Simulated scan of single mutants.
Amino acid sequence: MASSAFEDVVEDFEFLDDWEDRYRMVIDMGKDMPPLDEALKVPATKVDGCASQVWLHPTIDGGVFRFDGDSDAMIVRGLIALLHRLYNGLTLAEVLKVDARAELGRLGLHDHLSAQRSNGLRAMIERIRLLASEAA
């Protein structure tokens, strides 16, 4: 189960023929994200296990999960934007039901990310699941 915003990304990816175009789209999604407030870039929001610096700041309102994030690497900002579209607006229970690996697999990411980026993406997903689990 993914959010409708993520389904829109899946549809957009289907129209792009090569990975270079998809890669550019992911980077552009990251560029379009507002930067995370510097005051929120603290150890408590930093994601360990990423080669780049990554911060995820969750907000939960009425059982609905939302988060903002940032990174010092453009492709990672794009990956955060993808996760934002995958999870934002879901209930805590829905967040925990999302099979992120399968959903992101629909985009072909696993075949085109370096091992370091894949590990970082996995760390971000684990952090999101942990935050939702703790809040549930």
Rank of each mutant, 00 (worst) to 15 (best):
L96G: 07
G89E: 02
T91D: 02
F13I: 11
V26T: 12
L104S: 02
K31E: 12
E11I: 10
I75G: 05
A81H: 06
L82W: 02
S3V: 09
S118A: 12
T59Q: 05
I75A: 06
K97Q: 09
A44T: 00
F15G: 11
S114D: 12
R106L: 10
D37Y: 04
D61S: 04
V76P: 02
A73Y: 09
L121N: 07
I80D: 06
M1D: 04
G63D: 13
V47Q: 02
H110D: 12
L36H: 01
H84N: 15
V47S: 00
A44S: 05
S4E: 15
A44I: 00
R22V: 06
P43R: 03
I80H: 01
A135T: 03
G30A: 06
D17I: 14
L56Y: 03
D18M: 14
R77E: 02
F15T: 15
R101I: 10
G108C: 09
R85S: 12
L79A: 05
V47M: 04
A39E: 09
K31C: 10
D72T: 11
E38I: 07
K97I: 00
R85Y: 05
G63L: 12
S118D: 14
F13E: 08
P35A: 11
T59K: 15
R24Q: 15
R101Y: 12
F6I: 08
L82M: 05
A5E: 11
R24K: 15
R101D: 14
S114H: 12
E38H: 06
G30E: 09
R122F: 03
V54F: 04
G63A: 11
L16H: 07
D111E: 14
F65T: 04
M29P: 06
D99K: 03
V9E: 12
V76W: 11
Y23W: 15
L130G: 05
D8Q: 14
E14S: 14
V9R: 08
P58S: 08
G78A: 01
D28P: 03
L104K: 06
E20Q: 15
D37S: 07
L113S: 08
A44G: 00
G62T: 11
Q116P: 02
